[in-house]
């Protein structure tokens, strides 16, 4: 399941930059992000709100909301560049090669069409099937995602399903044309906690069976630890750390990831207080020079204030932190110096 280096990647994102022109200048919301996803692999992307993880996902499916735009870098799917395709070309890829799942199943489905109709229209858009064949396929999919009584439920409308059931329908919609990759943007955030685990297990099982790769965007480290093969931690529009999920969870290399892991309550281990990271992620307008994390970092040095670290090897992972550079973080900072 882990990334195989000899296989060509399914998705390659290289130096992706997403920017938003605003009245007060252009904001760089995703800054020089690069990663790969191997066929069948689940890549988790975590970070606080505003870290750029959802934008990265939207950029991949080609649905950045204007005025947001891809300002640089490239995105390749199965070796083919897709970030600069005309709308109509990209439309044929969406749904067929890349599926998407959004946060809120309550609002993802059109309330005026039955779920069967929404499935059939998606299937017929991408696959050369007759109406009857498409309906059979839709029915199979509903059964596969675990809708009880699929034969009668297929003609029901979204409001007749519960939140969890609706998210199952959304998953069926994302899978219905057999995509190679699914971009799942916070797929469980809007659901009850008891339903979340079911949906994650379903998504994991289906993607394994279909050999579909997943880019799982979430701020829930628990979901990632349970589901992903590799994880990318994003901070202020950049990847802070990326590596196999086990290593990142157990042996975080970036101080931000360490803080993030320290903030997860774990059963069995009695702790007085959870650790927390002081401060907040900087706004896009006031990203500090040097490492974007430096004002909150407990291990920073002089070098972190002036020089921006790129991803560098750190054990089995890669982290954007000078701690892992031969040069180190530089001279320690005297507290008064920074405050002044």
């Amino acid at each position: 399941m882990a990334s195989q280096t000899n296989n060509p990647p399914l998705l390659e994102v290289k130096n992706l930059r997403v920017e938003f022109p605003t009245r007060r200048g252009t904001l760089l919301a995703v800054d020089d992000v690069s990663f790969d996803i191997a066929p069948g692999e689940v890549l988790g992307v975590v970070g606080e709100s505003g870290a750029g993880k959802s934008l990265t996902g939207n950029a991949i499916i080609g649905l950045l909301e204007p005025p947001g735009r891809i300002a640089g870098g490239e995105i390749r799917l199965e070796g083919r560049r897709i970030d600069n395709l005309p709308y109509e070309e990209m439309r044929k890829i969406r749904g067929a090669r890349i599926g998407a799942i959004f946060q809120d199943p309550l609002t993802s489905l059109n309330p005026l069409y039955s779920v069967g109709r929404q499935l059939v229209e998606t299937i017929q858009t991408h696959l050369p099937l007759s109406a009857a064949e498409a309906r059979t396929r839709a029915l199979d999919l509903l059964k596969e995602v675990g809708i009880p009584g699929a034969e009668s439920r297929i003609d029901h409308y979204p409001h007749q399903f519960s939140g969890g059931m609706r998210q199952r329908v959304v998953i069926a919609l994302a899978l219905c044309a057999g995509p190679r990759l699914i971009v799942a943007d916070e797929p469980t955030t809007a659901l009850d906690v008891s339903i979340q685990a079911q949906i994650i297990a379903l998504l994991k099982r289906l993607c394994r069976e279909h050999g579909t790769a997943v880019m799982l965007v979430t701020h829930d480290m628990g979901v990632i630890a349970e589901t992903a093969d590799r994880v990318a931690v994003m901070y202020a529009g950049r990847i802070a750390e990326i590596g196999p999920v086990r290593d990142v969870v157990k042996h975080a290399k970036h101080p931000y990831t360490k803080g993030l892991m320290g903030s997860i309550p774990s059963l069995g281990v009695r702790t007085e207080r959870l650790t927390q990271i002081d401060g907040a992620m900087p706004r896009l307008t006031e990203i500090p020079t040097g490492c974007a994390f430096n004002p909150r970092c407990t291990e920073r040095g002089q070098r972190c204030l002036v020089e921006r670290p790129d991803l560098m090897a750190a054990g089995t992972s890669r982290a954007a932190c000078w701690l892992h550079d031969r040069g180190g973080v530089g001279a320690p900072i005297v507290k008064e110096m920074v405050d002044a």
């Binding site: 649905l63 993802s108 959304v170 044309a177």
Partner: peptide
């Protein structure tokens, strides 16, 4: 959101 999702499904 459902229009965005319809786009994500690749509908014309």
């Amino acid at each position: 959101e459902y229009i965005k999702f319809a786009r994500a499904r690749g509908l014309t």
